[in-house]
Structure formats: C-alpha cells, structure tokens
Design a protein around this nucleic acid. Structure first.
Length: 774
DNA sequence: ATGGAGACCTTTTTT
DNA sequence: AGGTCTCCAT
C-alpha cells in the first residue's frame, strides 16, 4: 500500500468517502463521537500524501486546542514538515497573521495589537465617561455586545449610524447614543493601531471586499479549505469562507447542527443548514456511528435532541455495550450535591481502581465550580478547573503584557494608560487627564506628546512631571530598540526588572503568587525562544522564513489570541476535570457528572424567553451527555445559593425528556451523610457494572424533606407577615427564630437564627417560611 | 495618593 | 457569596 492508501485504510467506509473526495464542496454532518477529527486529519493527510502543497490548504478551527490536536495527529500520518506547513489555526489567529501583513491597506501597521474583551470594555467605559453618560445605562457589556453583533454581521460604525432600524431599536432601549459610542470606539481602536476580536473577522472581510487583488491572492493560495465546527460560524466568518472558496469550490465543512451552542455570540446555525444552497453540487456525508459512548447514553441523547424542531435528520447508533443506566441523583442542596459527586468519584476510584483523569464534572456556569472544588478538596481528590480566570487575564500578567505591547506599538493607548503610572512614578490622574485633553485638542496620540513634549507648550504640567513623562517615554523607546537583537525572553526579563514591576511585586509579601505568575510567564517566553520556528512563512511571498529570530513582537502576537489551556495541560495529568459544558465540547471522558440539572440554571433562566434559545440549551445538554463514554450521572438539588440568597429549584425539564428506561433515580436526604459514608467504606457499590444493576445500590429511598417534616409543617407565612422574634420553619434548615427583617416587598430579607444550623439570611421572595406546629 | 468600607452587580457560555 | 467599583478618610 502507498501512503495515501494506508491513511484511508484506517477509516470506516463512510469516513473514507469523507476523507478521500477532496475535490468539490462537501458537507460532513458528524454526530457526537463519530470520528469527526479523525476524518478531518485523515483528509488533510490524504491530500498531502496525494501531493497537494500544504501551502494551499487552509484549515480553520474555533479553538487553539482543536488546531493543535489536529496538527499533532496529522504529524503522525505524514511527514512533520508538511504537516506543520498547513495553514491551520483558529479563524481569529489565521486572519490576524494575514492582517498584520496586509493591514497597511486598511490603515493599520505590522505592529497591530489585538484587544481582548477586557481591553475593549475599558475603551467603552472611558468613552462613556468622556461623553458624560450614565455608565449604568450605558453598560460596557451591553454596548460591546451591540457593537460585536454589528461587526459580526459586517456593519461598520458608519453603517450602524445609518441604519434607521438599529437606531430605532437603541432609542427604544433608551440608549440612543450607542451609535456615537461605536463611532468613537472604532476611531479609538484605529488610533491605537489595534483590533478587537470581531475586527479580525470584519477587516478580513473588508480586505477581500475592497481589494480584488487580495481576494485573488488568497483564493489562489487557499485552494483547499476545511472548516471545523461549521455550525458555529457567524456571518462574518461565513462570508470569508464563501468568498475564498468561490474560486476553487474545494471546501469541506464539518459540523453537527445538534451541537451548535454558540448562537448567543452570533453563530448562525443557518450556515450549515443552508450549505446545500450555497454549493448545490455539494456532497453530504453523515457520520452516524458513535464510537464513544454506551448504548444507553447514545439512545438517551437521540431521544433528547428529538425535542428540537430544526435539525438535519440523523440517527446516531453504536455497536458499544448497553452500559449502565444514566444515574439521576436528587440532593437537598448544592453542598450535598458537591459532596455526593465527590463521594461517588471516590467510591468509583476505590472500587475500580480508576485514575482521576477518567472523571469530569460539568456545569452550566462557572460560579458552580466553587462548591464542587471544596467538596473535592475535602476528599483529597486532585482536580483541575478549566476556564474561570485565564492566566492571561490576571492583573500582573496583563500589566507585563501591557509593557510588551506598548514597547511594540507605542500607539496602543489602552496599554499606555494602564502602565504610565504603574509602578507608581508620580504621573497621577490629573496629569493623565491633561494629556488626554491636549491629545484630543491637537488631534494627536498621547504617545506623540510624550515623544515631543516641547512641541506641546499648552500641556500645563510642572517641570518635575514633565521630566517623569520624558523619562517614561525614553525608557519605552530604549526597550523598543532592543527588539530586533534581543530575544523575547531576554528582553522580557529586562523589561520586567527595569520597569520596576518585579520590584513592586516583591515589595509586598502577599503578592507572592503574582511573582510566581510573572516568573511562569518568563518560563513560557524562554520556551518560546527555544522552539523551532514552525510554519513561519512570509505572507507576501509564501517563502519559508530562514532568518527566524524569536523576537518579543512574535511572542506577543502568538500570545494575543491564546487562552491558557496549554498552560493547564501540563498540570492536568491525573486530575478530575471541572469545566463548563461549553468548554467540554469536543472532549470525552469515561465518567461524567453533569451538575445543577435544575430549571433556571440549566436551562438557564435567560434562555426561557424564546424557543430558539431553549433549543440551544437543549443542544448544550446534548453536548453534555455525549461527552460520557461509560457512565453518566446527572445531579440536581432542591435548594441552591444564587447571588448569595437561597433559592428553591425544580428539576430540569431535560431530565424528564429522557425516557425513563435509560434512567436510574436515586434520592437522598442530607441527613444520610453518615450512612452514605459508612456504606461506601463497607464497599457497597454506588457504581455497578452492566451485569450488576444499580438497583442494588445501598441508598434507601428516603423521605423527601417535605414528607419527613410533615408533622412540623404548618401554613405558609406571607413574606409581608414575617416579623422579628417569630418562630418559623424552613424545609431545609428546620426551626428557627427571626432575629431581624430588612427591606420590603420583593426585597424583604429575614435574618433567622435556626436551632440547628445557626444564622441564615433569607430572601423571602425565594425562601418559603412556614408557621410551625411545635 | 492610598486603602478601606460599603454599595452594587453578577450568572450564561468564548475567540 | 464573591468580586468590582466608588467614595471617603487617612
């Protein structure tokens, strides 16, 4: 067999067709666990084996992780150098590379900075302040989402300002000035030689739209295009892909409409549903055999997704074992839920000698991770939390990166303002305000003023301050001159020390962790300078760069679009993984726990307004359960703290949507903790094999709290009637005495001293109190 | 200019 | 509950 044949021989028949039909448009509908990545990697490897130049292949993904994984897997199939030369990456990173080269046509430079969401929010906030608007009405988040939605649909600020419908909508929402903010925002970013995430897609479109030679260039270059997770593309991405593919029609999109979970940020499921309209000659291939999960899991997933109306019909099936039924655990409150999950993991580990990394705990919102974390810690189960505060979003890292960015791009005003007085060098808010005013009056950038202070006599600051400003500019400039001849790591060290950041962090003993983080950033830079340049092509000529040198600007541009999963990957070796369901997409685990299966949490209360939003939640649930290979456990609690107040929770409707034949329901009151632990120690199994049905499990069906407390419960007390010193009964906390009340109506709170559990603050609109019969 | 107390907001999800 | 932002006191 030749290489190409070997590559195809590793696939099943349908996969083989998807991998080998490389000419013409193709849509692959890949059910969960059906070998989607396998098809993509083998398809690319097959093309390479057949002599297609890697330079002519463009493979777009949504996450860096997916791109990295694909690259690694292709490397195992064909020779490394051609695998590495494939243009593969996220939409954002690939277009960023192109825009750095071509951006001059659009008024940007090669030093182009990428603003992340925090930077963007900062700009919005400062504009809102400049315009003297109410920041509570003009919320940065809200404004940014309007701007983002506009750009994702290829509306510029000018288009926005000219659209009567949009202006009307903003008027109705009481925020008529969003269009003005948008105009200023765009100007500010351009002035800073910066683009936000949406700009990377927007400006790529402008490039292809307004410069025919650019369209021609990249159409010629990208003769074979592959798009992963096509169901998650937004309009801007869709148009780019369509334009690039329109010359050669060699486009392969892979996706699963059932796993579209990013509509909230503009992903348009129609892109995949309409592919056939865009490319009528397209071949459609459905991968329906699931290699990942048990029969029970696959069947349950099929049953659930049928509740959605809009979808491409397909029936996922598997040859795998029937497996365990899906466990439903009902718990009293969120703490019990976390404890039960931790105990369950512990038992399974002990009984079956499983590694920690076989387990994943999934949840709808990041906020849910805290209680789970505590429970795992108590049981000494090693874990790692994905998501949450990214490494690159930590204050100290952002500070250091702001220096780097300013050194590379003096016009980056977000960075400049962030560090002009950090560490403190006596350039206070007053001085900064004056700088801003003079910059605006003279229509120049702040950096222009710093650079040539004497040219701006109307800058009314003292001589001492002037000296400090001069000194600051000089220092930044001196770092800049070092870029070409000092590698990223060496220059990074110089900046961190000479800027005074390290000194500042070291001066405070409580900042030890921050010092470690900065050092860890330096480690990453060291690593960066040591790796062989991969895929460093000159974008203009397509030639491999031979005189590669790992400069600071290269490092920063690499890091700009990075999330920190690599950072975590190293520590994640054998740990239980905690993450949101969104973050779990594309991953698989033997044992999966989906927690917080409650109405208003999952599905989220924010998604209950429309059918389409609810369907997205359902697809999210579909993603969640199809992560599991062997065993799936769903948990929900009767009460949970949200926003610091206790809330009652109904089980998620999604649980009811699973046919009961696939379910195994266990209910347990919190008072049973002792019994639970004892049984666990005695080795009674919570987990069971397929032969040993879960019915044998030791949990006795307990009375619900309501039933158990029947003889105490009296009549409900209306919130308005709750008063000090009143004896009350609460279904979770038992009997207690109201020590104080506060507020009125829906906000009325009661401070209650419970006989057994102590003081609690209850928001009466949620916490139902009853008059006890004592 | 710094830091602490209190008000206020948050919960989708991510490149 | 926890984090962020604001404002006031030092």
């Amino acid at each position: 067999m030749n290489q190409a044949e070997v590559i195809l021989s590793q696939l099943n028949e349908v996969q083989r067709e998807a991998a080998s039909l490389v000419k013409g448009p193709m849509m692959v509908i890949a059910g969960a666990g059906s070998g989607k990545t396998r098809v993509l990697t083998h398809r690319i490897a097959y093309m390479l084996a057949k002599g297609v130049s890697p330079f002519n292949i463009l493979a777009l993904t949504f996450t860096n992780k997916a791109a990295k994984e694909m690259k690694e897997r292709i490397t195992q199939l064909v020779d490394e150098s051609s695998a590495k030369a494939v243009n593969m990456g996220t939409f954002h990173s690939v277009f960023y590379r192109i825009l750095r080269v071509e951006g001059e046509k659009l008024g940007f430079t090669r030093n182009l900075t990428v603003y992340d969401t925090d930077d963007a929010k900062g700009v919005i906030k400062s504009i809102v302040k400049d315009m003297n608007l109410d920041p509570k009405l003009y919320l940065a988040n809200f404004i940014l989402s309007r701007i983002s939605a506009a750009k994702s649909n290829l509306f510029s600020a000018e288009d926005y300002a000219k659209s009567p419908e949009i202006l009307e909508a903003d008027n109705i929402s009481g925020r008529p000035l969003i269009s003005e903010i948008f105009l200023r925002y765009s100007a500010r970013l351009k002035n800073s030689d910066a683009m936000d995430f949406d700009d990377l897609l927007y400006y790529m479109n402008v490039l292809l739209r307004d410069f025919p030679e650019m369209l021609y260039k990249y159409q010629t270059r990208f003769q074979y295009i592959l798009v992963d997770e096509y169901q998650d593309t937004n309009f801007a991405q869709y148009v780019i892909v369509k334009k690039l593919a329109s010359a050669h029609h060699n486009i392969c999109v892979v996706g699963d409409d059932a796993q579209s979970i990013y509509a909230f940020r503009g992903a348009n499921i129609q892109n995949i549903l309409n592919f056939k309209k865009d490319f009528p000659e397209a071949t459609t291939i459905k991968l329906e055999q699931n290699y990942r999960s048990t029969q029970n899991i696959v069947k349950a997933a099929n049953a659930i997704i049928k509740f959605n109306k809009k979808q491409i019909t397909k029936e996922i099936w598997t040859d795998n074992d029937t497996g365990n039924k899906i466990s439903i655990l009902k718990l009293n409150n969120d703490n019990d839920e976390a404890t039960a999950v931790a105990n369950s993991i512990l038992e399974a580990k002990l009984n079956y000698h499983l590694e920690n990394k076989k387990f994943a705990i999934l949840y709808r919102t990041n906020a849910q991770s805290r209680t789970l974390e505590e429970a795992l810690m108590k049981q000494s189960i090693p874990y790692v939390i994905y998501g949450g505060l990214s490494f690159y979003k930590r204050k100290e890292i952002k500070d250091v990166l702001a220096y780097f960015r300013l050194v590379i791009n003096h016009y980056d005003e977000e960075s400049l303002l962030r560090i002009i007085n950090y560490p403190q060098r006596g350039i206070g808010a007053t001085t900064i305000d004056k700088l801003k005013v003079v910059a605006a009056d003279n229509n120049v950038r702040i950096w222009n003023i710093l650079e040539t202070l004497d040219a701006f006599p109307n800058l009314d600051v003292g001589t001492a301050t002037k000296a400090r400003l001069k000194d600051f500019a000089l220092r930044i400039k001196s770092f800049s001159t070092m870029i070409p001849k000092t590698d990223a790591y060496e220059l990074g060290k110089v900046i961190i020390h000479q800027s005074g950041i390290m000194q500042d962090l070291l001066s405070d003993v409580s900042e030890k962790e921050r010092v470690e983080n900065v050092e860890s950033l330096l480690d990453a830079m060291k690593e960066f300078t040591e790796i062989e340049p991969e895929n460093e092509f000159d974008e203009l000529t397509g030639e491999l760069i031979t005189n590669y040198f790992p400069t600071l600007d290269r490092f920063v541009s690499n890091v700009a679009l990075l999330t920190d999963d690599e950072h975590k990957e190293k520590e994640a070796q054998d740990r239980v993984k905690l993450m949101t369901i969104h973050a779990a997409k594309g991953l698989e685990f033997d044992y999966v726990y989906v927690t917080g299966m409650e109405e208003n949490l999952f599905p989220s209360s924010l998604s209950l307004n429309s059918r389409s939003e609810l369907e997205e939640e359902r697809r999210l649930f579909y993603v969640a359960i199809t992560r599991a290979k062997k065993m799936l456990t769903l948990t929900h609690a009767h009460t949970r703290y949200k926003f610091g107040s206790l809330q009652f929770c109904e089980p998620s409707r999604f649980i009811e949507e699973i046919p009961t034949e696939f379910l195994n329901i266990t209910e347990r009151a919190s008072s049973e903790k002792g019994a639970f632990k004892r049984k666990a120690q005695e080795g009674e199994l919570f987990f069971s094999t397929a032969k040993k049905p879960l019915e044998k499990v030791s949990f006795v069906k307990k009375l619900t709290p309501k039933e158990a407390n029947q003889n105490i419960i009296g009549t409900p007390i209306s919130p308005d009637d709750v008063m000090e010193n009143m004896r009350v009964f609460h279904t979770s906390f038992g009997l207690g005495t109201v020590s104080k009340t506060e507020g009125n109506g829906l906000d009325k709170k009661a401070f209650v001293r419970f006989d057994t559990v102590g003081d609690k603050t209850l928001l009466l609109k949620y916490a139902k109190l009853l008059a006890p019969k004592e």
